[in-house]
Design a protein around this nucleic acid. Structure first.
Lengths: 214, 214
DNA sequence: GGGTGCGCTAAGCGGTCGCTCAGTTTCGGC
DNA sequence: GCCGAAACTGAGCGACCGCTTAGCGCACCC
C-alpha cells in the first residue's frame, strides 16, 4: 500500500481521521508552519498559502487559528498515549515492556519530528480549557510509564529509589528528542530509539539489559 | 557539591553585568515576559510596562526586540558554559566531575527556570548570525560533557558504547528540566540536581555511584 | 544661571495581524 | 436546464504590532 509503513511498525499515514481533504491539507500545512516558526510566529496567511488556498478558506473548516493547534495537539497526544499504552500492556517482562515503550515513543518523536515538536512544545499557546484537556492526556502518559517501572520494581527487575522523579526524567528524555533530532543528521529514528531504550534501562537499574545497544 | 555556591542559596543576583540600571530592569522584564508567553507572543509594550517605562524607552538601550533576546541568550549561555567548565576542569575522578557537572547544571535550570527557559527554548527566534554565535557556545557545552565521559571511559570508570549519543542524551535530559520544573512544586532544585546526577551516572554505567540518591 | 546633553515620554506611522463578508464558482438532485 | 447548498475567493476591517520622532524635564558645566 502506498500510504502505509512510513515510520515502521505500521504507522498508517497520519491525519487520516481529518476530513474533508481541504481540512486535512490545511492541518498538515499548519503542522509544518508551527514546527518551523512556532505557533505565534505563524500567520494564517502562511498556513493557507502552504495549502494552496486563500486565507479565508481556513475559517470554513476551523473557527480560529487556535482550534487548528488544538486539533493537532489532541490527535498527537492520542497517538503518543496509544504508543505508550500498547507497549505498557503488551506481553513480556517489565524490562522488555519498558524498552519497547521507550523505543517506539522515541521512534515516533524522531520519525515524525515536525508533528512531535508542535505537540510537545506549543502547549502553552492553547487556552485554559484546551490546555487542561491536553494536560490530562499527559498525565495518562506519565501513569503508563510509571506503571511499567513499578512493575519492574515489584518483580525485582529494577532498582529505583525515586519512582515519580525517574518517571518524569524518562519521559522528559524521550520528549526532548523532538527538539534536537535532525532528519538530515547521521542517526535514524531506529538507532536513537535503540540507544534510548538502553539508556533508560540503565536509569532504572535493570538487572538484565539483554544485548544492550544494538 | 563543591562548585555550587553560585547556583545554590545565594545566587549572586545575575544580570549585574548589564548597565545602566534602566537597561537591566528592561532586560529582567523581558526575561520574565519571554518565559511566560514566548518571544513572539511578547510585545515591546509588555516588556516596557513590566519595567515601569514607556515603550519608547526600550529603544534607547536596545536597537530591536531581538537584540534583547540576543543579550539574554548570550549571557545565559556564557553562564551555562561556565558552570559546565568549572565542573569539568575541577579535581576528582570523572565520576565525581560528571556528577558535579550534572548536579550544578540541573540546579541552574531549576533554580533559575525563567532564564533557562528563554535561553534554551527561544533560540530559533534569533536571526542567522546571532543564532550561529549561540550554537557555537552550545557546541562547547557539548564538548565539556563529552570530555568528562571520555575521561571516565579511559579510566575504566564508565561503560559507554555510543559516546556522542550518550552525551547528547545527558545534555538533553538536563536542559529539559527548564521545561517541566515547577518552582511551586514539591521538589527543590537541589533534590532534582541530586536525582539527575545519579541517573546520569547510571546512564554512563559508572562503576561507583557512591551513596546514590539521598 | 543660561546653555547643553541625555534619559525618557506622548503621540503616532506604516505595516501586518486574525478574522469577516459579499459575491463567485462548483455541483448533486430533480 | 435550473436551483439551492456548500466551498472558496478578493477585498478589506479594526486592532495591534515594532519602531520612530518631537519635545520635555533635569542634572551638570562654565
Amino acid at each position: 500500500m502506498s500510504t502505509a509503513e512510513e515510520t515502521r511498525g505500521g504507522d498508517t499515514e497520519p491525519w487520516s481521521e481529518v476530513t474533508p481533504d481541504a481540512a486535512r491539507k490545511l492541518l498538515v500545512a499548519a503542522v509544518e508552519a508551527f514546527a518551523e516558526r512556532g505557533y505565534h510566529a505563524t500567520t494564517t496567511r502562511d498556513i493557507a498559502g502552504r495549502a494552496g488556498m486563500s486565507p479565508a478558506a481556513l475559517y470554513i473548516h476551523y473557527k480560529t487559528k487556535e482550534e487548528l493547534l488544538h486539533r493537532i495537539s489532541r490527535i498527537g497526544h492520542d497517538r503518543a498515549l496509544d504508543i505508550l499504552r500498547t507497549a505498557a500492556r503488551g506481553e513480556g517482562s517489565a524490562t522488555e515492556r519498558l524498552a519497547d515503550a521507550v523505543g517506539s515513543f522515541v521512534r515516533w518523536h524522531a520519525g515524525r519530528r515536525t508533528t512531535a515538536l508542535v505537540v510537545q512544545y506549543e502547549l502553552d499557546a492553547l487556552g485554559p480549557e484546551a490546555r487542561a484537556e491536553i494536560v490530562a492526556l499527559r498525565r495518562q502518559c506519565d501513569a503508563e510509564v510509571r506503571g511499567i517501572i513499578e512493575d519492574g520494581i515489584a518483580a525485582g527487575e529494577f532498582e529505583v529509589l525515586d519512582v515519580k522523579g525517574t518517571t518524569l526524567a524518562v519521559l522528559s528524555l524521550c520528549i526532548d528528542v523532538a527538539r534536537w533530532f535532525n532528519t538530515a543528521g547521521p542517526r535514524t529514528p531506529d538507532e536513537v530509539g535503540a540507544l534510548y531504550a538502553d539508556l533508560v534501562l540503565r536509569m532504572v537499574g535493570a538487572k538484565d539489559r539483554g544485548a544492550g545497544q544494538r
